[in-house]
């Protein structure tokens, strides 16, 4: 483990040097294994925020107050500590720079992590495929990768829209509320553009959003790909 950075009041990103890392595609995850002194182990999956061939990778972890692994990764882990990881894993919830369909990304909270990898891959590959990101956060302080997203949104090929669920910025036109059909419809491509979608976040968020998207009838079956992080 090389370095960690505070992302939000409850989350931080973790840079890892992984000798022999084969590189990863945007959207993949890995398994982190922690081992206590008595040999007890706990394994959890984390998406990879970085893309490409290097041996330096980035994760971003949100602390669940009652969690076993995430508080350790967010609060305890320091530069120089070693972590056991296995991956990259998953070949379905992935975006390739050669893909040509317009991409709708919808993230809830830490669900931004694999979508950030897609946005980074889109940027570094010079892809001109239109990307829309709809990002649901509790408040402006809870945005992961806030500065980088602000800079990347200057691109004509990426549009970033926020949904604030608890507290919005002072000048925001919409009162804080959970993500709605209207918010999703407003950000959506048209059916004729044959878009694909990646939806990621806590299970309840993904269920809600995916149900809304099916109802909008914009996406062909199997073009809405989801990653459920757990919880309700």
């Amino acid at each position: 483990m090389v370095e960690t950075r505070i992302q939000t009041p409850s989350a931080r990103s973790i840079q890892l040097d992984v000798p022999g890392w084969p590189g990863n595609i945007a959207g993949q995850h890995l398994d982190v294994r922690l081992t206590a002194e008595d040999g007890y182990t706990a394994v959890r999956s984390y998406s990879i925020a970085s893309v490409g061939d290097g041996e330096r990778i980035e994760l971003a972890v949100d602390r669940l107050p009652t969690g076993e692994v995430s508080p350790y990764l967010v609060e305890e882990l320091r530069a120089g500590d070693q972590l056991e990881v296995r991956g990259p894993l998953g070949t379905y919830f992935v975006w390739h720079p050669t893909d040509t369909a317009p991409v709708q990304l919808i993230a809830g909270g830490s669900g931004i992590v694999p979508l950030m990898a897609m946005i980074r891959s889109h940027e570094t590959s010079g892809s001109t495929v239109p990307f829309h990101l709809l990002y649901s956060v509790r408040s402006p302080r809870d945005v992961f990768f806030a500065d980088e997203l602000r800079a990347l949104a200057e691109s004509p090929h990426l549009r970033v829209t926020y949904v604030y669920t608890r507290q919005a910025p002072p000048d925001w036109p919409i009162a804080p509320a959970r993500i709605t059909t209207a918010a999703i419809a407003a950000d959506a491509f048209s059916r004729e553009e044959n878009p694909v979608a990646f939806v990621c976040g806590p299970t309840g968020f993904v269920e809600t959003v995916a149900d809304i998207m099916v109802g909008l009838r914009i996406f062909a079956p199997l073009t809405i790909k989801t990653e459920r992080f757990g919880g309700k």
């Binding site: 922690l34 182990t41 706990a42």
Partner: peptide, 25 residues
């Protein structure tokens, strides 16, 4: 060989023979 995670204690301790390897309840 397992790397010991400094400062990690974990939550559950009892061995549960009903759990397959690597699973948690």
């Amino acid at each position: 060989m397992a790397v010991i995670s400094r400062g990690f204690f974990g939550r559950k301790r009892e061995e549960n023979p009903e759990l397959p390897p690597g699973q948690y309840l």
